[in-house]
Amino acid sequence: MSRADTRDTASILAARADARSQGDGVSDWMAYLPAARTPYPPAGVDPQLLTWAETVAPGGYTHKVVSRGTRIRLEDVAGDACAHLLVFNALEPWERLNVADTQKIPWQAYLGAGHPLLSGDGRVLATVVADTSGHHDAFCGTSTDLWNLEKYGDAAPHGPSPSGRARLTLAAAKHGLGPGDLPPSVSFFQGLRVEVDGAFTWQGSAGPATYVDLLAELPLVVLVANVPHPLDPRTDYVVGPLRVHAWRSSPSAPDDPHADATPERRRAYLNTVDYAEARGL
């Protein structure tokens, strides 16, 4: 029996009733509204402070504008997520993640707890304030359609192996940003390491139920694509669900340990606070 045979949608009233009867449905990948009603509340967080609760589908993407001081938790539920992240200053989006500065200025190529995600304007857009995975990458960015065509045989946005760039392009468009606004991204939950000769060694996942917390140091446009890492050695398109929660918190203060850890970071947070104060944020 086909689906049409079991549904009465012959009239507008019947079709409306049919449509409305679906409203309480659930799926494994959805946003939970209001966020306080998330089925997966982060331990130790007052649910009333939550501003974002969502499970991102494999191959899916999400995006949100968050205020300064928002703490964003990305969780790799099953150990196969890969969260490709871009952040922009929501007030002046030409200020955005600068991966080169994010690696160079802290003198550290590998992302981990305490690492600032820097813009090219000498400020911290977000801080990695917690990390139970340690398997991340700031070298290889995300996949392109060309890459996925070669690797999986398809890259259509509506197909079985969408690329990270295509996902981020869609997310960006919803904030008025175009393809030219997408700089190199970083990714969480699938790691690699650099050998002496420069070769990348695949590290992969740290396993299920790890998370990364990002603290928004400015109002941010956050774009996330949940797609396989380009160098994932699996020939199939394998990616797991990504859970996102965010809640109201406080931005870093210049004397917080991670902000005061090195001279470069100290000045980065001073610049960020200076900007925020001047703008009345």
Binding site: F139, T144, D145, W147, R165, P179, L231
Partner: peptide, 29 residues
């Protein structure tokens, strides 16, 4: 809008350094 991309260049060649025969790739790969 199609411009040099560090991560695409590095991911395609599987190496963090640029040497002879490195293909400098765009953000579309």
């Amino acid at each position: 809008d199609e411009r040099y991309s560090v991560p695409d260049t590095l991911a395609w060649q599987g190496n963090a350094y640029v040497r002879e025969s490195t293909v400098l790739r765009s953000n579309l790969g």
